[in-house]
Design a protein around this nucleic acid. Structure first.
Lengths: 397, 397
DNA sequence: ACCATAGGGTCAAAGGTCTC
DNA sequence: GGAGACCTTTGACCCTATGG
């Protein structure tokens, strides 16, 4: 009962797509290379003798993505590409049909494990996605550590080489509780001391966070320092923006209620007000508007922390960083496709990555140690902070 | 529509409850055993692109009795148990009234209202993609103009307000031919004069190019100047990198055979060698390795030219720029999906956008007029260039 | 007598409809 | 205007008849 199609043996390409909708063809059906869907659609329509009405101008496009949108135009297209209604067998002798035997795996076992059918995803892809989950979990730990009372006194070297506190369960059990000092009832305008305090805390957390990254672990000590110094200004800014309670698009609030907004502060150095506006206009606003979630934030933070183009990074480290960054970028992209939809993922992904130019700009503008010192009004830094901002040797600064 | 669910009547237990609300499941929906309500809720939410806000702590319980209490938490639960938004399909052809007594007359009769084909691609999407084609065509014209002999003498103001030469067919016919001076047989090490020459040419082309962009046309004159100044360093660098004939990853060659490479030039100012390395390591290498095509390049150039975060850009212009940039980003993304495959598009798109951080860094580093002057060794600029680099008022510089 | 091809059937899981 | 019970449609996957 074959249809009459020329099943040309050579068949290279043209037979591989459905002439109706361009989906992958499953062979000739009713004389035309076509997909399962169009084949079944055509048969049903003929057999039920259905008639459809186009809601528009009978010119609707028909392709894989919209083939169900207009049945009239789909059926017309079927006829137009040559599907043969005479190939439909109105009454096939129902001899010997068996009930469909159940073949599928009877269970899916959602179980405590998780999702993800293990089909077309590569091993490395899965690793990347696991890594994203780990990043997110780490971010939650960072939030706890940030709000805690704990604040070590140590040199930058000690901080970098010491074991990571975030994965020290005993430490986190002891010190992971939010400090009562890090909550608020009323807002108060942030003073110099507040900026100083939260920068020191976030530098502390930044290093603990960095130490959890496998890519960071793979670097030499000088390269680690180069990265940390490169992110010394942008990391705390990002954290302040993302974790600020929502008091409007013009206000950034620290956990203890200290806040800043657009109020000009003329007694501050020039760069200070500019940076406030950058944080509000170029970071807070887009991040709020996009409703970035913790996973996206943690990936974003890592992507821009692992910057192969940071100053003083060694050539071999560049490669490691570039690959590591790429892995996270890919994982983030897949996460967005899965959770925000393939349609919106491109836009969202693009917007998020473009925020990187803001960070790069801030990083360069604040790069000069003299600017940093100026920005903080020459406030007394801890030894740790001095080493981070001005370099290890400057123990005397 | 793959089967997969066990419809076996006896079927033990776990499959029978909705993983979102524990109600009785009506089968797998969007990948998860779920009830009719949660299934419909998920679909509606996605299709209407709704966002909900939790009134409490985003920890609301979700079960059969309270599933409607907090839509935010219900939707989160849907995602959390693994409902797959990619399983949501496009709109289908309306099915007609089902046999519960009809209420309203069956007129739909949109009639010849207008175009409106139910394609999944929105009107704006198609416009975006046309725009990408236009951008690419413009880029080809820019290449011709760049290689031509023509070089006007005019002020920056005149350049910005004059009609665009690229779409002046008569002009392009007369002046669009490559100059013999812009070809080479042998390479020669670039001198200060060469840098100067090609920067002036590319600034000229940059402005003609900018004037073709609808988004640019929509800006006020001061905003136009702000954008041009912001890109004054990065635009020529990008063009030099992308159009350089391939003489290896360590060499950038101008059309007339002048080249530079890693050879240190100690007599140059400090920023000079650093910028050379940036161009080679951070732009040339990735751009070559990715084999960026002209369409991608032209979109990339536009995305980073239309920078809402450039200094001195007005607040209303920011919005225009942000929307315009987003449109190009989306078009670029769709282009990559279409031409490089959905699998690789994410990675490729990410890599390209991340190059923006390099541009941002270069832009800031060279921002200070004094640095620019230093970079070019105080060479004599044209009036045009002085105005571009140092501002309109500085006619006397 | 293969066995690849192309018919038809099945049903889980999409989407739409309509009442509350 | 949202929720969800109830409806139709879709199409991946199955089985089988046919003819080279």
């Amino acid at each position: 009962m074959t249809g009459g199609g020329p099943s040309s043996a050579n068949s290279s390409q043209p037979e591989e797509v459905c002439l109706v909708c361009q989906d992958i063809s499953t062979g000739y059906h009713y004389g035309v290379p076509s997909c399962n869907g169009c084949k079944t659609f055509f048969r049903r329509t003929i057999m039920k003798n259905q008639t459809f009405t186009c809601q528009f101008q009978k010119k609707c496009p028909v392709d894989k993505s919209v083939r169900c949108a207009c049945r009239h135009c789909r059926f017309e297209k079927c006829l137009q590409v040559g599907m043969d209604r005479n190939a439909i067998q109105q009454n096939r002798d129902p001899i010997g049909y068996t009930k469909r035997t159940r073949r599928y795996p009877p269970i899916k076992k959602i179980e405590a494990s998780e999702e993800c059918s293990p089909n077309m995803m590569s091993e490395s892809d899965r690793n990347e996605d696991n890594f994203l989950a780990t990043l997110t979990a780490t971010e939650e730990k960072c939030k706890r550590l940030r709000l805690s009372e704990y604040m070590p006194t140590r040199t930058l070297i000690e901080a970098v080489v010491s074991p990571c506190l975030l994965y020290d369960d005993q430490f986190m059990a002891e010190h992971g509780e939010p400090s009562p000092r890090h909550s608020y009832k009323d807002l108060r305008f942030a003073t110099q001391v507040d900026y100083h305090y939260w920068h020191e805390r976030d530098w502390f957390v930044m290093i603990e966070w960095a130490k959890t990254l496998p890519v960071f672990q793979a670097l030499t000590f000088p390269d680690k320092l180069a990265l940390l110094r490169h992110s010394a200004i942008t990391y705390p800014s990002l954290v302040h923006v993302f974790n600020s309670p929502d008091h409007g698009l013009d206000t950034i609030v620290f956990p203890d209620g200290a806040y800043f907004d657009r109020t000009p502060e003329p007694t501050r150095p020039l760069g200070f007000n500019k940076k406030k506006y950058q944080m509000l206009d170029q970071l807070l606003k887009p991040i709020r508007q996009m409703s970035i979630d913790t996973t996206e934030f943690s990936a974003f933070k890592a992507i821009f922390f692992l910057n192969p183009d940071a100053d003083d990074v060694d050539a071999t480290a560049k490669k490691i960083l570039s690959d590591g960054r790429s892995a996270i970028t890919n994982a983030l992209y897949r996460y967005m496709v899965k959770n925000k939809g393939a349609e919106d993922a491109g836009d969202r992904f693009g917007r998020l990555l473009l925020l990187g130019t803001v960070l790069a700009t801030m990083a360069v503008e604040m790069k000069e140690a003299v600017l940093v010192a100026d920005f903080f009004d020459q406030i007394k830094f801890s030894m740790f902070a001095k080493q981070l901002l001005f370099g290890i040797k400057t123990e005397n600064a």
